[in-house]
Amino acid sequence: MGSGNATSDFILLGLLDHSRAHQFLFGMVLIIAFTSLVGNVLMILLIHRDLRLHTPMYFLLSQLSLMDAMLVSTTVPKMAADYLTGSKSISLAGCGLQIFFLLTLGGGECFLLAAMSYDRYVAVCHPLRYPTLMSWPLCLRMTSGSWFLGAADGLMQAVTALSFPFCRGREIDHFFCEAPTLVRLACADTSVFQDVMYICCVLMLLVPSCLILTSYGLILAAVLHMCSTEARKKAFATCSSHLAVVGLFYGAAIFIYMRPKSFRSANHDKVVSAFYTILTPMLNPLIYSLRNSEVKGALRKCNIVHDAQKPEIRENY
Results as ranks from 00 to 15, higher is better:
Lys310Met: 15
Ile254Tyr: 14
Lys234Glu: 12
Thr181Ala: 15
Ala158Asn: 03
Asp173Thr: 06
Met204His: 07
Cys227Lys: 14
Phe176Ala: 02
Phe263Cys: 15
Ser91Ile: 03
Gln63His: 08
Gly108His: 04
Ile304Gln: 15
Thr75Ala: 12
Asn284Gly: 06
Ile11Glu: 08
Leu51Gly: 06
Phe164Trp: 04
Gly14Phe: 02
Gln98Trp: 01
Glu312Tyr: 14
Leu30Met: 09
Met204Trp: 07
Leu128Ala: 13
Met226Glu: 06
Leu103Ile: 11
Leu218Glu: 13
Thr280Gln: 08
Val192His: 12
Glu230Phe: 04
Ala123Thr: 03
Leu128Ile: 01
Gly27Arg: 06
Pro137Gly: 04
Asn40Phe: 06
Phe148His: 08
Leu71Glu: 14
Arg184Gln: 09
Gly145His: 07
Leu286Pro: 08
His306Gly: 14
Leu128Lys: 11
Val192Glu: 13
Thr277Cys: 02
Ser215Asn: 05
Ala179Met: 09
Tyr317Gly: 12
Phe100Thr: 03
Ile212Met: 14
Met1Glu: 09
Gln98Leu: 02
Leu105Gln: 08
Ser209Thr: 10
Arg232Cys: 05
Ile254Met: 13
Ser73Ala: 13
Ala80Pro: 03
Cys239Phe: 00
Ser163Ala: 01
Ala33Phe: 07
Met282Gln: 00
Ser144His: 14
Ser87Asp: 10
Val245Pro: 12
Met156Tyr: 10
Leu105Asp: 05
Asp173Leu: 03
Pro165Ser: 12
Arg129Met: 07
Ala123Gln: 02
Ser8Leu: 12
Phe148Pro: 10
Gly2Glu: 13
Met43Glu: 10
Asn316Arg: 12
Cys227Pro: 15
Ala266Ile: 15
Met197Trp: 11
Cys201Tyr: 10
Ala253Ser: 14
Cys110His: 08
Gly251Val: 00
His242Val: 12
Ser163Phe: 01
Leu299His: 14
Cys187Arg: 06
Ile287Phe: 00
Asn267Met: 15
Ile256Ala: 13
Asp173Ala: 06
Met67Gly: 13
Leu103Thr: 10
Leu133Met: 01
Asp17Arg: 05
Leu112Trp: 04
Phe166Asp: 01
Pro165Val: 08
Pro180Gly: 02
Gly169Thr: 10
Met67Lys: 06
Leu243Asn: 11
Cys210Ile: 13
Ala231Met: 00
His48Gln: 11
Asp9Lys: 07
Pro56Gly: 07
Ser3Lys: 11
Ser215Arg: 05
Gly251Lys: 02
Leu37Gly: 15
Cys125Pro: 02
Val246Glu: 07
Leu248Cys: 06
Phe175Arg: 02
Ser135Gly: 04
Ile172Thr: 02
Gly39Met: 05
